[in-house]
Amino acid sequence: MEEHDIICTGCPKGCRVTVTVEKDEITDIKGFECPTGKEYAINEYKNPTRILPTTVRVKEGEFPLVPVKTAKPIPKSLLLEAMKVIAEKEVIAPIKIGDTVIENILDTSVNIVATRNIEKK
């Protein structure tokens, strides 16, 4: 039996929800004060994912960086790995908001997309 403490981000209360797991099965959930918390804790236990917002280097742009994000959440455990791939990348201006900058990062089938227009210098 393992216990996982998960802080619910559903509201400022930040309830500490304890998920009890036995042989990969959730056997008990405690500590939430509303249904949001229960749902959140289950998701966060089973498949914690995050949007990754960061930047990619730009050549010949009005700014040296374009802000980007993962178009969909990716597994939390991949955030720093993804940064390594993103760090290697350099794009050439102009870039339009929504443009795909990197496809299918770390085989997650999630793209990295631009979140701002960057004109040519």
């Binding site: 949007i51 917002p53 960061t54 930047t55 802000p67 994000k69 908001i97 979140t115 701002r116 227009n117």
Partner: peptide, 22 residues
């Protein structure tokens, strides 16, 4: 503010700062 977390109240959609501004 390139992080996400903007617009949930106003656009009912989670945006980054630059996207919200755009």
């Amino acid at each position: 503010c390139i992080h996400n977390g903007f617009g949930l109240e106003y656009f009912d959609q989670e945006l980054t700062g630059p996207e919200y501004a755009d």
